[in-house]
Amino acid sequence: MQGLEVRGLSKRFGGLTVSEDIDFDLMPGDRKALIGPNGAGKSTFSNLVTGILTPTSGTIRFDGSDIGRLNEAQRVRLGIAKTFQITTLFRDLTVRENLRLPILERERRGFGFIGRANGHTAIEAEVDDLLGQFALGGLADRKVADLAYGQQRLVELALTLALKPRVLILDEPAAGVPSSETHLIVDAIERLPEDLAVLIIEHDMDLVFRVARQIVVLVQGRILTEGTPEDIAADAQVRELYLGGGHD
């Protein structure tokens, strides 16, 4: 079977259950959104899938094989990549270097100690291509630390796509981005390769309804309900949840 298959996934931190018996599928071409109040366990779920955290119980399969024992780096090399809720980049490196690094690693050249890091024509062309795609060309030689937060979010998206992932998890890609710039993020998501499996964790409902074709609602570590955007918009429980507070 293709894609990601999560069964009975649970995670406890001491006495606190943050993920409880989650069943979840993500297939090539999917555009799923994971929504839920603060502290519902969305980031934890993404960290369990990407291998940053180890589940207390449950299984995670990718393309039919169990990846539960693989560490984060090994899962990335299989094609499962994510962006962080809080931008995580190489702040002292330039935008160009930030994009070059993942491509070098993807091409298994990271241990290379002969020749220059910027000496591979094909890789440099790919970097230029990504820069163009995200309209970052003018910032290519600036340090990431000197960019506006919205621009950094774009760099992180570009960097993650540079890995050519097959499963992409975006943890609140628009968080901290000024609303005048969210369209850049939405545009970038809409332009993602069609066969990529995409999971978007997001509080911004406009964004969710624009890009998601299925929505999963997580509350206190459990899946409350899931369905099409229309189903979810009409769901009484979800309306209760979002009108009854708990969300900012």
């Binding site: 090399r77 962080f84 490196l93 993807r106 993650t160």
Partner: peptide, 11 residues
């Protein structure tokens, strides 16, 4: 710069 990001690009 960032061990977390490094792991997240498969290193």
């Amino acid at each position: 710069e960032s061990p977390e990001r490094m792991a997240a690009i498969g290193v």
